[in-house]
Simulated scan of single mutants.
Amino acid sequence: MKNRIRVLRAEREITQEELAELVGVTRNTITSLEKGKYYPSLKLAFRIADAFGVGIENVFTYERDKDGPGSGDDP
């Protein structure tokens, strides 16, 4: 899953700490999300989107792994 958190923060001039406070997580969580090392729960994903005033699909993009589940190889 890819996200645009860093871009959206920059556009709105919001620090990681400010975003973390808005959505109720630590700054380390925001850092991990931006680096793609952590995937948020659905609830957190919606809170992040709400903090930016956009739909969840404007923050997060699901990309299927080539060989992973749902890659089209299933009958």
Rank of each mutant, 00 (worst) to 15 (best):
F46N: 10
V54K: 09
A51V: 07
T29G: 13
T26Q: 08
T31C: 14
I56P: 09
I30T: 05
R9G: 01
I56A: 12
V54W: 13
G55A: 13
N28I: 10
M1V: 11
R6W: 07
K66G: 11
D67R: 05
G53C: 04
R9M: 09
Y62Q: 09
I56N: 14
D67E: 15
Q16E: 11
S71N: 15
A49Y: 13
G53M: 01
P40D: 12
R9F: 02
K37D: 10
I5W: 03
L42M: 13
P69Q: 05
T61P: 01
E17Y: 11
I30E: 01
A45S: 13
Y39L: 11
N58R: 13
G36N: 08
M1E: 09
A20M: 01
P69C: 04
R64I: 12
G70K: 04
F46H: 10
Y38P: 05
F52P: 02
G55F: 13
R27S: 09
G24M: 06
S71Q: 04
E63K: 09
D74G: 06
V25W: 03
R64T: 10
N58Q: 14
A45G: 15
K37E: 15
M1D: 07
L42N: 15
E13D: 15
A51F: 01
I14T: 00
P40H: 08
L19N: 00
A45L: 04
L8P: 01
D50V: 04
R12Y: 07
K35H: 11
T15C: 02
N3V: 06
V25G: 00
D73N: 15
K43A: 07
L22N: 05
G68T: 00
G55M: 14
G55E: 10
L19R: 03
R9E: 03
N58P: 04
L44R: 01
A45T: 08
I56R: 12
M1G: 13
E13C: 06
T31F: 13
E13F: 10
T29D: 11
E57A: 14
A45K: 08
E21D: 12
N3C: 03
G70S: 08
R6I: 12
A10K: 09
E17H: 11
P40R: 05
Y38L: 10
E34L: 08
Q16G: 10
Q16T: 03
E21P: 00
I30K: 07
R64K: 12
T31H: 15
G24A: 03
Q16P: 03
T26M: 06
V7A: 15
N3I: 06
T61N: 00
E11C: 11
A10M: 01
